[in-house]
Amino acid sequence: MEIIFVLISISLCVAMLFLLAFVWAVRSHQYDDTYTPAVRVLFDDQEENAQPRGQR
């Protein structure tokens, strides 16, 4: 049953990784504004497509 010690330490490490990922997300402003990015992602670049390709 000593395998439990190993299993638990592994699972804790994985969980810790997720916690760190969450902290990173908060630090990189991802929770500052939870509305605008959802709208922003729907804008497409129609205007630029309308221009001749050579200019891009």
Binding site: D32, D33, T34, Y35, T36, V39
Partner: peptide, 9 residues
């Protein structure tokens, strides 16, 4: 150079 909206605020 850039402008960014925070809609909720």
């Amino acid at each position: 150079t850039s402008s960014r909206v925070n809609f909720l605020r």
